[in-house]
Amino acid sequence: MRKVNIKLLSARTGGALALLLALGGAPALATPPQLPAALPSLSAPADTATAPPLPPDAAVPQPVRRPAASHLRELRGQHDFQYTDVREEPEQAGFWARLLRWFFRGLSRLFDTKGGRVAWDVILYLLIGGGLVYAVLKFLQVDLTKVFGRAPRALPLAYEAGQENIHALDFSQAIAQAEATGNLRLAVRLGYLQLLKQLTDRELIAWQPDKTNQAYLRELETSRPTARAPFAELTRQFEYIWYGELPLPAALYAPVRESQRQFGQQLSGAGVRPPAA
């Protein structure tokens, strides 16, 4: 079928050419339309005695105007009138374009069969359904890991580098060294850290670098209520000395250190057992 861009033709070559081509494309209009037989006759009534005779037809038929051959050639040469699709030659396309074309052609061949179309529909519905389920679960903030019967993994905490590893420190030596250098405040701190290590070893508290002393006291209240009160007092002493920067003369240091030692001995003694699992 001829494709005629009437609007474009009108714009470029004027209304006359467009009209000409349109008339040429509709030859039926050249002959007068035949009236159906069923229609009533439009001829004059039988009594024509009073009607004047019609004059003879003096009209001269106009010849059909044809555009000049050169003008047609010029129009055909214009890009706007080139109606054939210009396809890119495969060898001109880049690697990525050729790869995509190959992929989509393969995909098209795969899904162009009856089975392929069914499979495509199933995949589409599965994707839509999965997306809806995911959106609902996300909206309800459901933890999907619990669906499979396990608790969410505790991710390792990104701790800052600790000042000391209480499990690797030789407390006896470090405390002795602090006492020898007269750094009694440090000695009290090390003594307190040693108690925390002992409590951890006995599984009375769970050591974590982000926990405060009060957090350990709360844990101790659950795991070993009888140890809480003496440890609370040792904690108070440590906090006054360490955080409160309380001056610590030797006279005050001795009983503090002795209290720590006694508590440690109680923890290490035969009477202290780890809580039942």
């Binding site: 009888t226 009160a229 003496p230 002493q237 006054y240 309380l246 005050l252 209290s259 006694q262 109680q266």
Partner: peptide, 29 residues
């Protein structure tokens, strides 16, 4: 003072039953 802290009731087999509460120098703290 630590001596005034409410110590929980000690069960017979409890641990640290004789844990001395370090109360000798609490006035300093």
């Amino acid at each position: 003072s630590a001596a005034s802290l409410p110590l929980p009731a000690t069960p017979p087999d409890a641990l640290l039953t004789d844990a001395p509460t370090p109360a000798s120098n609490t006035n300093s703290f």
